[in-house]
Amino acid sequence: MKIQINGRWYEAREGEMVLDVLRREGIDVPALCAHEAVEPYGACRLCMVEITHEDWGGWKGNVTSCLYPVEDKLIVQTHTEDIIELRKTVLNLLLARCPNSPEIQKLASEYGIDTTSFVPREDADNCIMCGLCTRVCTQMGFNAISVAGRGYGREIATPLKEAPPDCVGCLACVKICPTHHIQYEDIGTTREIWGRQFELVKCKQCGKALITREFADYLIENRDIPADYFDICDDCKRSGTARDFKKLVHWEEKEEAEEEVSA
């Protein structure tokens, strides 16, 4: 099927969301709470676009593109005056919530907003409440962290605000966070995240510590991975393969040389 975006026609596939097409085609629409790893959520409202269709009798509406499924001949406008104004308002509000976040500052200034018109949050942190971290954690099967509270006081929290018993220290939440809000620290062979400490598995060859015991065990148990898979780290595995490969190549070279000699 085809959909029209800002006057041009693009190919779209059944089951895709409008944002998927926008991203594939490199059309610049900000979207802070959508990520291909998790289900769309519709919280930041930045990805809003205007849609209409020739069969809709002139009806137009604004929808979040991350949640709107494509349909044939859908007509999309990504930068109407109202939508730009909405994005400005959202960014203006986010800048009040997270005045110190470089990512939000940058995005806001792209929309011409350098200082917020609103009252900045006291003791502000960099969490924009996009919910990506909790969703990815759930998607991974851990459910270690969740959204707590409501309204302006909503926050990402661990159960009872203590070290989360179900966390395996996989860092998926850290990596997905668009504002780098979630902190973790690896010191020697321990990792600390969400107030919990993990022992890291050391590579039997190089001694580097890379993955937590809990996460390794989880993967071995649930993802059909050999029990000794994490004994040796990826780097060592790679260099091991390289060494073997080299041997193989050299062995062929040696054979060739021997053949030459014998000839």
């Binding site: 519709g42 409202r45 509000l93 409501r150 309204g151 909503r154």
Partner: peptide
């Protein structure tokens, strides 16, 4: 303000 679930930015903030 107190009853907003806080999911999205325009309503919460």
């Amino acid at each position: 303000v107190d009853e907003s679930c806080g999911k999205d930015v325009p309503c919460r903030e």
